[in-house]
């Protein structure tokens, strides 16, 4: 199979306007991935499936990943002039990774028997702008898996034919696989005879009544 750089170059020549970034992976597995721009993701996916050399006709795995906002602290050694003497000082640099949700697709080829090519799309944030294009029109196998990512992560897939909750019940409000998900103290609103749970329920009910 071609290298990711070659694939990237070929996509960029075939799909005008596609912005593609190769994401690093420091693990020994060496599985790098391609980050697609949302506007052209569907066209790129179609190219990857239909291209005669790549022929990635099989989407093995599709899943979501939650990346909440994170402050990354990097310690950098810096040389400073202090009272005429050069000294080495350690300085902490803080960079903020913006929050987003990510959809990951692992593609293989059944015809050529190669792979994986990993493609990713990202939402703008974890709030209202949680939309990415659905790739179900290209690979039908994503249908249930995208529904699952919608259900558990709250990623909205535009263009999905049947976007409903799949594992949780329809009336369920939150998205359990998000990192900041707080589970309710009692799913069925029935106090159980354990003191701890009763205390939690009382505290919650008091809070609900107060405002």
């Amino acid at each position: 199979m071609e290298t990711l750089e070659q694939i990237k170059a070929r996509i960029e020549s075939a799909v005008p306007g596609a912005v593609i970034t190769i994401l690093p992976n420091e693990s020994p597995s060496g599985q790098l991935s391609l980050l697609l721009s949302n506007s052209q993701a569907l066209a790129v996916a179609k190219f990857l499936r239909d291209d005669s050399a790549l022929c990635l006709d099989y989407c093995s795995n599709m899943t979501g990943v939650d990346w909440p906002e994170l402050v990354i602290k990097n310690k950098v050694k810096k040389k400073v002039m202090f009272e005429g003497v050069e000294k080495e000082v350690e300085e902490t640099l803080e960079t903020v990774r913006p929050p987003y949700l990510e959809a990951v697709y692992h593609l293989y080829s059944m015809a050529k028997k190669h792979g994986p090519v990993i493609i990713r799309t990202r939402t703008e944030d974890r709030g209202a702008k949680n939309h990415v294009p659905s790739l179900t029109p290209i690979w039908r196998g994503c249908e249930f898996q995208e529904r699952e990512a919608y259900d558990l992560f709250g990623i909205v897939f535009d263009g999905h034919p049947d976007l409903r909750r799949i594992l949780m019940w329809d009336e369920f409000k939150d998205h359990p696989m998000r990192k900041d998900y707080v589970e309710p103290d009692d799913y069925e609103y029935e106090p159980t005879p354990h003191d701890e749970v009763v205390e939690k329920v009382k505290a919650r009910q008091a809070k609900e009544v107060a405002p």
Binding site: N25, E26, S27, P28, S29, Q31, S60, N61, H106, P116, I118
Partner: peptide, 10 residues
């Protein structure tokens, strides 16, 4: 503790 990164095995 594996190093940061990702892997898909099947």
């Amino acid at each position: 503790r594996p190093k940061p990164g990702e892997a898909y095995g099947r």
